[in-house]
Nucleic acid binder design. Sequence first.
DNA 1: ATTATAAACTAATACCGTTAGTTTGTCAAC
DNA 2: GTTGACAAACTAACGGTATTAGTTTATAAT
Lengths: 189, 189
Amino acid sequence: MPRKGLNRDIVIDAAISLIEKQGNRSFSLNELARSLDVKTTSLYNYVDNMDELIGAVGLKAAKMIKQAELDAIEGKRRDDALFSLCTAYRKFALEHVELYRVVFGMQKNKSACTKEVYSEIIEPIIIMLSDYNLDETAKMHWQRILRALMHGFFSHEYTGGFTRYPVSQDETYLIALKAAASGIHNAET
Amino acid sequence: MPRKGLNRDIVIDAAISLIEKQGNRSFSLNELARSLDVKTTSLYNYVDNMDELIGAVGLKAAKMIKQAELDAIEGKRRDDALFSLCTAYRKFALEHVELYRVVFGMQKNKSACTKEVYSEIIEPIIIMLSDYNLDETAKMHWQRILRALMHGFFSHEYTGGFTRYPVSQDETYLIALKAAASGIHNAET
DNA sequence: ATTATAAACTAATACCGTTAGTTTGTCAAC
DNA sequence: GTTGACAAACTAACGGTATTAGTTTATAAT
């Protein structure tokens, strides 16, 4: 048939923009196909199935998160870099809610893809933590703690879990980061 | 027809045990109906629709979490209670993975149900924090931080986000809790 | 015994992801 | 320039999903 200039990247990018625009929930291969002016089954030329597509979207999203983190720490060191990275992470999540949820909504088993996703997100954090005098083990602990904190904070913030009391969420985040920084300082050799 | 003794509670409980047994992903009204030996459409006598059912399941799960938290802090005070509650929370999540994910997988908008869910989970944390000399605002901040930490930690732990390096996850959790406790001490008046 | 209510049903709709098999455009080799 | 291979896009179909509308029928109250 009249060849449209479709390829895997275009399909995945279209999926991303559709998810960002209309949300995770209502995303479907049918809608994706329509947005590309193609029949649904044609998508299977570029994608194994729904799960694999979501995996690819998630990976691309993870790379965006990584870049945001890298940008945030550029030229900064220690606590400066720490606060900047964590702020950028939260900002990205809030500005790309639907996409962010794809990254962390991916199922356990699915491919080795999750590993790759986490690698992307972790790397800048490791770089940032390398400015502290931490042994390898401590670095791993704190990289985990920061990720847990950032993700957990956003999850609650997004779903309205922090709206029960009229207290600034920015302030809460700041206090959490200060406590983390303090913990990291104590762990320094 | 031959009346089975069905009612809303039975339906919701059946949904819970089906979700716990077979997982979130494959849960469907068809399977639920089959497990109750009833046609799918009969379920609509007890439940508005899928979302509302999931909401009810999530609320019940939240109450289970609350109870686990309450049990954990019984007879304990301050740091003892803090560590115990956080440990129990994590334990519950790990032992009821699929159910836990229902609670935090619920969508934003849906009913006022999310509010109620969070209320359940928060209450024991507030009780626990009341043993510290914190003003109301600080209490709210730290209640949020603890929730963020616990949820974020479990999320990563469950999806394998902490398996990249061979460092004890229990140890990481402990370090995080110590940092939180330290932060709380500093906030005391 | 009659009647109202609600529990369970049948039938149907509009989606969804996915597989199999078919047409057809494009590009390379001859 | 024609031929042939390849892959892009298609059509058709299947089994699954949630959901609505309308129907039977068992039970409880009168």
